[in-house]
């Protein structure tokens, strides 16, 4: 049997091979590494520009039926593993209201506060409202069918971690203060909505 030492190349030979490989392939490796770094940067950029698995909804309407649709989709999206945001603007703010205050409001704002619904339990229906009889009728039908009420839906989206954002511009116009809205929600403007919407595969205006 040949001794093991013959299978081990002398150290200087190994160094020579290393040097030869470096000389021949060093530049190629460096260029490959550069290409890889460029590709990684492009992928990161593309990821940034691609819509994510998110759902962003503008709840513009303060109608019971439309709010139902918005809340159902937002909660369904979370159940489907998506992140979900809802932007409540103009009439939609009624869904976030927990109380109505009058102190510090202008005459016009006081009138608006008086005429607008006090919360999700007192919003009108978009059709067949019949001076407030419609919602009573629909609530009865929904109870019979064991469909959740609007306040229950609001509770559910909060539990599910749907991001709720109140539009501060409409709050300012109508004189709605933060104390009148649900605690723990976010506040924002059009950029807040667009920031979320541009990263969303699903975005709706209801």
């Amino acid at each position: 049997m040949a001794s093991d030492s013959s299978s081990q190349p002398p150290e200087d030979l190994a160094a020579l091979v290393d040097a030869a490989v470096e000389k021949r392939c060093g530049a190629a490796f460096a260029s490959l590494e550069q290409t890889l770094a460029d590709l990684k940067a492009s992928v990161a950029e593309l990821k940034e520009a691609c819509p994510e698995d998110r759902c962003t909804i503008v709840a513009f309407s303060g109608d019971m039926d439309r709010l139902f649709a918005a809340l159902t989709i937002a909660s369904g999206a979370v159940a489907m593993g998506m992140e979900s945001s809802m932007f409540f603007t103009f009439w939609g703010l009624s869904a976030l209201k927990v109380k109505t205050t009058y102190a510090g409001k202008s005459v016009g704002q006081k009138m608006a506060a008086m005429m607008l619904p006090g919360g999700p339990n007192s919003v009108p229906t978009s059709r067949m409202n019949m001076a407030g009889m419609g919602p009573v009728f629909f609530k009865m039908l929904m109870k019979q069918k064991n469909v959740q009420s609007l306040p229950e839906m609001m509770e559910m989206v909060q539990e599910l971690g749907v991001r709720l954002v109140a539009c501060e511009m409409s709050m300012g116009v109508m004189g709605i203060s933060r104390e009148e809205l649900l605690p723990g929600i976010d506040y924002g403007g059009v950029a807040t909505y667009l920031g979320d919407a541009s990263r969303s595969k699903v975005t709706l205006f209801i």
């Binding site: 369904g76 979370v78 159940a79 064991n146 469909v147 959740q148 559910m156």
Partner: peptide
């Protein structure tokens, strides 16, 4: 049983 959309899906996901 007896629950309406979207509650069953929400419960399943939980």
């Amino acid at each position: 049983g007896g629950l309406s959309c979207p509650v069953p899906i929400v419960r399943i996901s939980r």
